[in-house]
Write a protein that binds this DNA or RNA. Structure first.
Lengths: 255, 255
DNA sequence: GCTGGGAGAGGCTTA
DNA sequence: TAAGCCTTTCCCAGC
């Protein structure tokens, strides 16, 4: 069962004009050129084109679209000797991105007018942990106070700069998931920068629910500290259950 | 035009058994509970279920699925008073993730058997550049030879390990795009590890099309080297156009 | 608004 | 399976 290319072209074209979402299923080749380049030889795929220009090519497996283009893409259709070609073109500052989907056979083509005004409401995101910690640095260590003007807060991560009871500068790095080598080197960099700038002894504390073996070793070699963070997400809010310092005893290295 | 819930359920169920990809379009509510939680009130959406268990809920705009579950999810269908409920469940080490899609109306339901053995070929990937460089390390510097046994086992970990004409170990790190602070610290780490393990003086070379100002400064402070890489992607393969050493002259810092 | 640049989240790959 | 690392990223800050 195959759909006539011209018929499919009409469905796509009118779908775009009407602000509808369009789905095509068929055998096609895909080619992409832009920030990277890729080629996908013949096979059956699903092409979804949304009313905002979003363009997604899905294979029969895996969560990610194998080729895609975000909102704002200009959609073009064309019929050549081999069949229907649907393209998405997008202009970036100094290059053009283009995906071509060349259909040899089209099994299905239809447009859907979707009414949807709802927005996703997300609860208990791990983001709340930053706020929790920030509100009470004594969870980490008594006597720790934030140096307000220094603290930088950005989306998805937070670095806290504080002062401990002995007046030393403390850099706290919080990771919401398992901390690896990169987290440790990052912390080291901050500590070095800060200690140079301030000319004071500076401590570095990594707070994370878990840390890899090698990362812990490296951290300790550098005189940094690790605090294990236990928390639970009990909707609609997160809560810190425990926060304790984990430092391997030296002797453990020799056992 | 609405499809009978029971009929849609049959389509989904048999689709899963037959290893097909299934698409449902309809008015639904979505609820997710797992590492976080979310709720999406009524609206029209596209639900795509792949044969490997991938589960994607798409709204009429934006590239990303509003709710999703990766391959391996277990798909359940059920009919209750309000209509069809399709769920995806996945077990993680110590929690269960579940998405429920509750359809009030179903506009479309169909299963597609997709044959697709093709794999995406990405050009200009780091791996490909690495292969090119590996074939001819003299692009970097005459007299540089790969340390065979090392480079094979360390592939994907350290990029390239070689020996220069004076017998020194050389670690080459390759970045496909602009190198930042992370690239430099990563290289430094490799150099330190290797120099400790071998007990030899080890050079570190960063090869990238570009480098940020601060990263270059840091790199030079640490005695590492930067080579500017020019390459072009000319399908079906990438080609290295130029590779030259860039070291800022000291005087440039004072101008 | 545009652009440079640091950092993050999630998937992929290798040990 | 665990851990590193790469990305058609993302977002802030500064111009």
């Amino acid at each position: 069962m195959t759909i006539n290319p011209q018929q499919a072209k009409n469905i796509v074209d009118s779908s775009l004009n009407a602000g509808k979402l369009c789905i095509l299923v068929g055998n096609c080749k895909v080619q992409y050129e832009g920030r990277a380049a890729s080629k996908l030889s013949e096979g059956d795929r699903v092409l979804m084109i949304k009313s905002d220009g979003t363009f997604l090519v899905h294979q029969s497996k895996q969560a990610k679209a194998v080729n895609y283009q975000g909102p704002g893409a200009k959609i073009l259709t064309e019929i050549n000797d081999e069949g229907l070609v649907v393209s998405a073109v997008r202009k970036l500052p100094n290059l053009i991105e283009k995906i071509d989907v060349r259909f040899r056979d089209i099994y299905f083509a239809e447009a859907f007018g979707l009414k949807d005004d709802a927005n996703l409401k997300l609860f208990g995101s791990e983001r709340q942990l930053s706020d929790l910690l920030m509100q009470d640095l004594s969870l980490i260590e008594p006597g720790l106070v934030p140096l307000q003007q220094e603290s930088v807060q950005a989306r998805g991560y937070m670095d806290i700069i504080a002062q401990d009871s002995k007046g030393r500068i403390v850099v706290v790095e919080l990771k919401r998931r398992i901390a690896g080598l990169d987290a440790v080197t990052q912390l080291k960099r901050y500590v070095e920068e800060l200690s140079k700038r301030k000319g004071k002894i500076t401590r570095g504390i990594l707070v994370a629910p878990e840390i890899t073996e090698r990362a812990l070793l490296m951290l300790q070699n550098w005189g940094l500290e690790y605090f294990k963070l236990d928390y639970e997400i009990d909707n609609p809010s997160a809560r810190i259950i425990g926060l304790e310092k984990k430092q391997k005893e030296l002797k453990e290295y020799f056992k």
